[in-house]
Simulated scan of single mutants.
Amino acid sequence: MSRRTLLGLALLVAAIVTGWSAWNMRERAAPAAGAGQRSDYVLRDFELVTLDKAGVESARLKAPELQRSRQDESLSIVRPLFLLPGEDGGWRMSADTGWVAADGNLIRLEGNVAGDSAEGHPVPTSFRTSTLELLPEQDLARTAAAVTMTQPGIMQTGVGFQANLQTRQYKLLSKVKVRYDPPTRR
């Protein structure tokens, strides 16, 4: 065989393989349009302050990443830390992930949710749960998950929890257990 014949056969094989490959690629479904999957914007290592209708600080948010959804304008947050002002210093709320509705009236925290009263509060209070919903305009926190709440000398556990974050009124909804450890006298 001559060089021209070998070169012609090689080009024919290459053309067949290329055509077959293109044909197989055509049969695959095209990926779904990513318009709803993409973010409008992403913030990294940020601190955000929100104001209420009167122009007073209602919350402060610190996190390593925030993404705003194009589709529903909600916010997805990685390791959020919410600082909620209030009487006697307010609250510090953290979690593995967070989600904020477009209108800001609902915040969902998930994974290792921790709520702690501000330092210096006369009755330090903390609670731990797996999920928590915050309703900022109502100063309400709630969950249907198991909760552990601690204050000096007392630990309460239960399933389901509601708290008014301004008045510090707490309600465990079911399966409540209380352990009281009074401080020792000196």
Rank of each mutant, 00 (worst) to 15 (best):
M1S: 15
S2W: 05
S2A: 08
R3A: 15
R4I: 14
L12R: 09
V13Y: 04
V13E: 03
V13R: 04
A14V: 09
V17P: 03
T18W: 15
G19W: 10
G19I: 06
S21D: 13
A22V: 12
A30P: 06
P31F: 07
A32I: 13
G34E: 15
G36P: 15
Q37T: 14
D40L: 07
Y41K: 02
L48T: 05
L51A: 06
A54Y: 02
A54F: 02
G55H: 00
V56M: 12
E57D: 01
R60T: 00
R60Y: 00
L61V: 00
L61N: 00
A63W: 02
Q67R: 14
R70Y: 04
D72P: 03
S74Y: 04
S76I: 08
V78G: 01
R79L: 11
P80S: 05
P85R: 02
G86T: 05
G86I: 03
G86N: 05
D88H: 13
G90R: 02
G90M: 05
R92T: 04
M93D: 04
D96G: 10
A101E: 08
D103M: 09
G104F: 00
N105G: 14
R108N: 13
R108Q: 13
E110P: 01
V113Q: 01
V113G: 00
A114K: 10
E119Q: 13
P124L: 03
P124A: 07
P124W: 05
T125K: 04
S126V: 02
R128L: 11
R128K: 12
L132T: 03
L135E: 13
P136C: 12
P136K: 05
E137I: 09
D139Y: 14
L140F: 13
A141Y: 05
R142F: 09
T143F: 00
A144Y: 07
A145F: 12
A145T: 09
A146K: 15
T150S: 15
P152F: 05
I154P: 06
Q156W: 05
T157F: 06
T157W: 04
F161K: 00
N164H: 06
R168K: 11
Q169E: 11
L172R: 01
S174W: 06
K175R: 15
K177Y: 06
K177R: 12
V178W: 06
R179P: 04
P182C: 08
